[in-house]
Design a protein around this nucleic acid. Structure first.
Lengths: 261, 261
DNA sequence: GGATGTGAAAGACTTCACAGCT
DNA sequence: AGCTGTGAAGTCTTTCACATCC
């Protein structure tokens, strides 16, 4: 037990809102791009635009990390990159295992951004004996039998599940039993995990369905709200609604991703 | 607004909360499983468990759709499946194009759940001339040059971007110009789109970073709270920290190769 | 002057708890 | 008796707007 909601002696400040945490990677990516262009400082306005959020939100987010900016000037890019990296735990190396080396697993293994920042593919695991030894992305695939040993020998705490839905829970159970406490699930199924284990899911079909919902709504409004200016091409008139902000990308709200069981 | 649809009092609320919309696919999946097992009715408690949420939330969610349950009994599985499908716009067929047929694009094309629920892969598009004509998941890949024609001829309104980050915005612009109004972006970059176009993103690297944050927090607590039985496992080895390095799978590293986080 | 950092207000979402229907 | 549907309360998140500091 223990793990779960450990009672912490009110260690001040460590309360970064989940919504903020979910945006830190976005800021980090934008900052990294600026860094590569040798941009020394950036204002909340500029950085917010690059990250696709509004500046008030960004400043509020950063305020949870501390006062890393300079009034009248902006933020030092390199310094912020370091602070956010540290906050996200990317200054250390996280060994990761990918279970299920089908098309998706292979795509993930080949994903460059994977290795680049803090994450290292420690092993690829698949249940198919025929896959064993075969290299994918330069890493030999190992059989599921080795799962527990791999986790322990490499001190893996993050596992990626890219198996078919039917195998996901079983794989998850084994990962958790072997010591994994964070799971990124690509299988279209709800995973049940003990307290203290984080699960985030990535689900193509859910995302598409959400898009379909909005798409349908657009079509309805379009039809109902007669055709005002729509002259040329289709271009979704979509009319009203839609407030100012152009693109608050993504699953943004980050619905219920983390579910500590 | 205009549209004098002022007929219904309420209940048929036009405003289903975004958070609710994001969960409908989850409920639908759970219900479909029940349906396949020929379960006739289900209580909010049972369905909530299957979907991984709590029952109060589920009931509240359903209340936005209408009163589809029976007090003292529960919900009729088939009926709910239909209502949710309709609400999500899955009773119609959505042609989808996938742009960028690397490992990830291929994985998406092969994804079964794709075709099953209202979505149909209308075309696969890639910029590599060598890919043209080559079948992936039984569908011949077409060259980017054909993009506009494909969108128009098939009435595609949903596009999936699985290209490297560097090509994503350009592809996005072309999709939008051709009439696409919903985009699912797998490339690790912020897309800018005109008003009225929805973008959702799926980003491996962001998800991993969020997990790393929580993982780090756990480790800190563990250390602070010390003791616990523990013993085995642990010692995250944490080798040296790697810096940048320009990995990048050269050959069709497919997906987002560049752009770390 | 100019941009950050932040209380306070507004809004969105979740949870509670129970009235109301079967 | 059992379970849904929902106002109300509680919590989290976003936005505002301005005092504060370089």
């Amino acid at each position: 037990m223990a793990t779960g909601r450990t009672h912490r002696p009110a260690t001040r400040s460590r309360g970064i809102p989940e919504a903020t945490v979910a945006r830190l990677p976005l800021y980090l990516r934008a900052l990294t791009a600026l860094s590569e262009r040798s941009v020394p400082t950036v204002s909340s306005e500029e950085l917010a635009a690059a990250a696709g959020v509004n500046s008030a939100k960004l400043r509020k987010d950063f305020s949870y990390l501390g006062s890393y900016g300079t009034r009248g000037v902006g933020y030092d890019v390199e310094y912020l990159v370091y602070q956010i990296s540290r906050e996200l735990g990317l200054t250390q190396d996280w060994p990761v295992v990918i279970v299920g080396i089908g098309n998706l697993g292979a795509a993930l293994a080949n994903y460059g951004g994977f290795a680049s920042r803090g994450f290292r593919v420690a092993a690829l695991i698949d249940a198919d004996p025929a896959m064993a030894g075969k290299p994918v992305a330069g890493i030999p695939v190992q059989h599921t039998d080795e799962l527990e040993a791999i986790i322990r020998d490499n001190g893996v705490s993050i596992g990626v599940i890219a198996t078919p839905a039917g195998a996901a829970q079983q794989v998850c159970d084994r990962l958790v039993a072997a010591g994994v406490t964070s799971i990124l699930n690509f299988a279209p199924t709800v995973l049940t995990v003990p307290d203290g284990v984080d699960v985030r899911k990535v689900d193509l079909s859910i995302e598409l369905q959400i898009l379909a919902f909005h798409e349908q709504r657009k079509a309805g409004e379009e039809a109902a709200a007669d055709v005002t200016q729509a002259a040329g091409t289709t271009n979704s008139a979509v009319a009203a609604k839609r407030e100012g902000s152009a693109t608050d990308q993504g699953p943004d709200g980050d619905v219920p991703a983390v579910m500590p069981a």
